[in-house]
């Protein structure tokens, strides 16, 4: 893949070849350039989807959504961000101070780190592990633990309940999720991200394994804790769940966390089932982000329509439906591809 000289956005920059160059100066420079580009992608994606989510949900609810700040209210989220960051940061006396302060930034940095592990185009990727996709899913499954620690540090009962729920639903979706990924691994004969994408050049896996796509999409909703699995932030029950005792700057961080994780989830689904950056005419990064955006829009529409699932029904659903479906999908993948 390294000798592929496709140019992302006409920047005339092949970051991958810089990173892989033997000269340490070029290599470090390439990594920094990659990190900056990805940070820009995450910020722009997060910002646009933060706005789009408000607009789309407003549309479903026959409202206007943000309109005043900027054209179509595009700057509303920026205004909100300024407001949130300008507010006083109150740390409760009963909180575990160190964990309280580092918890959310740590979660955000983990999710950014996971995005950094992903390739955005042949010429825009930092890592190329043989088991790249598995590494990402392993680290992803640690985030509820981090979240538990963060919520626990606030020593608020609602945060505790929210964190317990968040870890408990891990039991229901983690196994089907990994099995859906394993089916892709069978189909692509490996877990290297670039080879998974190139294996789909003759036909995306979503056509061959619709069951796997369904399982991965549903479990990804649970992983991202988007509705109907938003038990972590069940506002009608737990006020604000794990964020109940956190003040405004942390809330701003949590929003950033949510949208960066939404980008991560959408990118993972795109790479595993929709052929990643494969597509005619347009540059690969445009294809990748366009596909990821469509998936994010689906995630948003689901939020606007459904009610919240109960914890026991999520567990039942996971073991009764998702696990058998993902096993069937594994068999289908084996029959078709092995």
């Amino acid at each position: 893949m390294t000798n592929n000289l496709q140019i992302p956005f006409g920047m005339g920059l092949n970051v991958t070849s810089y990173i892989n160059s033997p000269n340490p100066v070029y290599s470090v420079g390439g990594i920094i350039a990659f990190a900056i580009i990805v940070a820009i992608i995450i910020s722009i994606f997060g910002y646009i989807f933060g706005w789009l989510e408000r607009k789309m949900i407003a549309k479903v609810q026959h409202r206007h959504g943000p309109t005043y700040v900027g054209k179509f209210g595009i700057l509303q989220n920026f205004a909100d961000l300024v407001k949130l960051l300008a507010k006083e940061d109150i740390i409760p006396d009963s909180a575990e101070r160190t964990l309280y302060i580092i918890g959310l930034p740590l979660l955000v940095s983990v999710s950014i780190f996971l995005v950094l592990l992903l390739p955005f185009a042949p010429s825009l990727q930092a890592t190329n592990f043989a088991f790249g996709i598995l590494i990402i899913f392993v680290i992803l499954s640690f985030t509820p633990i981090l979240l538990f620690i963060t919520a626990f540090s606030t020593s608020n009962k609602f945060a505790d309940i929210s964190a317990q729920r968040s870890v408990l639903i891990l039991l229901s979706y983690e196994l089907p999720m990994i099995l859906a990924v394993a089916a892709v691994g069978i189909a692509a004969h490996g877990y290297n991200i670039a080879s998974i994408i190139s294996a789909q050049s003759n036909g995306i896996f979503a056509i061959f394994m619709p069951l796997g796509l369904a399982v991965l999409f549903i479990t990804m909703l649970a992983e991202l804790e988007r509705p109907p699995f938003d038990l972590r932030e069940a506002d009608s029950e737990l006020i604000a769940g794990w964020l109940t005792d956190m003040s405004a700057p942390y809330y701003a961080l949590s929003l950033f966390l949510d949208y960066s994780r939404m980008l991560l989830g959408s990118l993972l689904i795109t790479i595993l089932f929709f052929g990643g950056w494969e597509g005619p005419l347009l540059p690969p990064i445009v294809w990748l982000l366009a596909k990821a955006s469509v998936i994010s829009i689906f995630i948003i529409i689901i939020r606007a329509t459904t009610v919240r699932m109960r914890i026991d029904s999520i567990l039942k659903f996971g073991w009764k439906w998702l696990l058998p479906l993902s096993l069937i999908n594994l068999v289908i993948a084996y029959i078709i591809f092995a």
Partner: peptide, 16 residues
Amino acid sequence: CNDIGQMFTAFMWGFQ
């Protein structure tokens, strides 16, 4: 619907 965790959709429809 709000109580059982909907994102204000039925709430808005009902109010309208």
